[in-house]
């Protein structure tokens, strides 16, 4: 079973192993390779067949939990010791500190808006962007245009006992999920996408490998919420019969046999340190 650690606590060997596995998945030419994950995210941001699976809906959290599990498994096929690290942006708030160091994610874009110049993903020869809304073939960042969410904001979101609420979309005002996702203040998830900027702010945000570290942190925060309020299926909403969204026991495309209920308790698959 994997233990997901904070990026700031990885050894240099763990960082190198994570980077190497990510690059092998990127180099894979067939099957569910890195770019499959990018295009899947682009497809599922919108509704597919009239259902909001990945964003602006209750299944935002379980869909991305499964998405990360699939990505982690793909990395583990190359190196069984690898787990996705998380970026705790309530602690690591600098554009030069963890995880944006030259031995992991690399730093800001040149000129504050251009291609990343440091680290293993700098330049298209090291990390070539192929599926994107913008024509840049190198990874870009424009960091620090807003303020990262604070620990106090995280605490306020985790203190909300209701998982989600009608109308179960980006306009829901009560419930934890829309605050965590960020269409409702205090906006945790969306803020960090905007803060990194460049590809992370685009529909093809998984092109930036820090996507996985950010979403690992979002998943960790959900896990903390579950630790407080319960891992059982009664804590996910809606339970049944809600058009256009994924109820507790409905399948989350593009996976088969995966529902919110099947991913709620992750503790036999991975834990957080």
């Amino acid at each position: 079973m994997g233990v997901r650690k904070s990026a700031r606590n990885l050894t240099s060997g763990e960082k190198a192993a994570f980077v190497a596995a990510v690059k092998r998945l990127k180099a894979q030419t067939t099957g569910r390779n890195y770019d499959w994950f990018v295009t899947t995210h682009m497809t599922y941001f919108a509704s597919v067949g009239g259902i909001q699976y990945a964003h602006r809906s209750p299944s935002f959290l379980p869909w991305h939990r499964q998405y990360l599990i699939e990505f982690e498994r793909a990395l583990q096929a190359f190196d069984a010791t690898v787990s996705i690290p998380y970026w705790d942006w309530t602690v690591d708030r600098s554009i030069t500190g963890a995880p944006f160091t030259a031995d992991l994610m690399g730093g800001n874009g040149s000129g504050g808006n251009g291609p990343v110049t440091t680290g293993p993903f700098a330049g298209s020869a090291n990390w070539r962007i192929t599926a994107s809304a913008s024509s840049s073939t190198s990874l870009r960042r424009a960091m620090g245009s807003n303020t990262l969410p604070t620990a106090a904001q995280v605490t306020s979101v985790l203190g909300i006992s209701a998982y989600d609420a009608a109308p179960w979309n980006s306009s829901a005002t009560s419930g934890m999920r829309n605050r965590m996702e960020g269409w409702q203040t205090p906006n945790l998830h969306n803020s960090a996408h905007v803060w990194v900027g460049g590809h992370m702010g685009q529909q093809d945000s998984p092109n930036d490998p820090v996507f996985w570290l950010h979403h690992c942190n979002i998943d960790r925060l959900w896990s903390q919420w579950q630790t407080r309020w319960g891992f059982d299926s009664s804590r996910y909403l809606p339970a049944a019969g809600t058009p256009g969204v994924v109820d507790l026991n409905e399948t989350m495309q593009p996976w088969t046999g995966v529902t919110p209920a099947t991913v709620l308790d992750h503790r036999n698959t991975y834990t957080y340190a």
Binding site: M42, N113, G114, A131, S132, A133, S134, S135, S136, R140, A142, G197, G198, G201, Q202, Q203, D204
Partner: peptide, 11 residues
């Protein structure tokens, strides 16, 4: 965001 780059068909 685009700077010196352009939109692609995906946009």
């Amino acid at each position: 965001v685009l700077g010196d780059t352009e939109l692609t068909a995906l946009a």
